[in-house]
């Protein structure tokens, strides 16, 4: 940790010193791309790349928020279920309104509802963790179960599908785009840049790292600890809402299995990217690299018949463990 902090500083002062622990995730990403190119000529095709990126966008958008939560010493296990619940709720309400209003207003209301309910869900997590003092792991384990069960109940055990007309109207949000780049990719990229700037160059980002590093020191340094921690969960909730807005038009439905294990993929991406699980140091660009690494592994296994795609989870697991081992070395090098 201290190593990475001083190194990033050295870089800022022009003394460039390559360090595997800092650039490790980037090296892994480049290696994956090279392997992909060698194994399958279609790997770098426009269709495949946009496909991988668009699929990464949902987890990626959530993982950006997760980076702030983890950096500030927190954790949120509920994001996958939260996404499913928010999606189910938005679909249900849009379907209910569809008869009485024109398509576009319904759609806009649905989007607003998704964003608001994400925000509210994040606020509930945050307020219970900061004010009621419930351990983040336990609380979000609880809300994870609650949201998952609520969406199953809303869908009555089946699938909630958006009405046909609305679905056609909504489609372009996932399938459309600018200059051949689809909207989810654009939104993901913009949020990633914004997140990186906020993390590295604003008081909020610095406060997150200070709280994760030592909450007591932050409190004694007049940092509004409760407010900053609450804000990380609210931001994460809002980002879940944005991810849902991008996700619903892809399939036009939500079910009990929507967003299953997203929380673990998001957390894994954050850790692979070099953010410390115990908090105190985070980097958003690392998280983006982590998301890409995870989805490229899945993509590569699908494109080649070298290893069975059923082993996707095993390989991702190995990558996660390797990333944590690298982190531990960072600590020992202090």
């Amino acid at each position: 940790m201290s190593g990475t902090a001083s190194i990033s500083k050295n870089r800022a002062r022009g003394a460039r010193r390559p360090d595997l622990r800092v650039i490790g995730p980037l090296v892994a990403l480049v290696a994956l791309v090279l392997i992909g190119m060698a194994l399958n000529p279609n790997f770098l095709s426009y269709a495949n790349i946009t496909n991988v990126l668009a699929r990464s966008a949902f987890i990626g958008i959530i993982a950006i928020g997760m980076t702030f939560v983890i950096t500030a010493g927190g954790l949120d296990l509920s994001v996958g279920s939260m996404a499913a619940f928010v999606a189910g709720l938005a679909i249900l309400v849009m379907n209910a309104l569809a008869g009485s209003m024109a398509g576009l207003p319904v759609l806009l209301l649905g989007i607003a509802l998704a964003l608001l309910s994400g925000l509210a869900a994040g606020f509930i997590n945050g307020i219970l963790i900061t004010r009621a003092g419930i351990e983040a792991f336990i609380l979000t384990l609880g809300t994870m179960g609650i949201y998952r069960s609520l969406v199953t109940w809303l869908a009555d055990g089946g699938t909630l599908s958006l009405g046909y007309e609305l679905r056609e109207l909504y489609r372009p949000v996932y399938y459309g785009g600018l200059f051949g780049v689809s909207w989810p990719i654009i939104v993901f990229a913009l949020l990633a840049v914004l997140g990186e700037v906020v993390m590295r160059h604003t008081a909020f980002g610095r406060h997150c790292a200070a709280i994760g590093s030592n909450e007591k020191v932050a409190r004694y340094s007049s940092v509004a600890v409760t407010r900053v921690k609450l804000a990380t969960y609210v931001i994460l909730g809002l980002l879940v809402g944005i991810a849902v807005v991008m996700y619903v038009p892809r399939l036009g439905s939500a079910s009990a299995t929507t967003g299953l294990l997203w929380e673990l993929e998001a957390i894994a991406a954050v850790i692979i990217g070099g953010t410390l699980l115990k908090g105190g140091f985070g980097r958003v660009w690392g998280t983006v690299v982590g998301v890409l690494i995870l989805s490229l592994i899945g993509n590569l296994l699908n494109l080649t018949d070298f290893v069975s795609p059923y082993l996707n989870g095993a390989i991702q697991g190995v990558v996660i463990i390797l990333a944590v081992v690298l982190q531990r070395d960072t600590g020992a090098a202090r």
Binding site: A203, A209, N214, V217, R334
Partner: peptide
Amino acid sequence: GAGLLLEKSLRENLTLPLLETF
């Protein structure tokens, strides 16, 4: 325990209480 962030740099520790003014 309450004064300094031991794994952070001097600069980050110095300015922590007053970041907004920077």
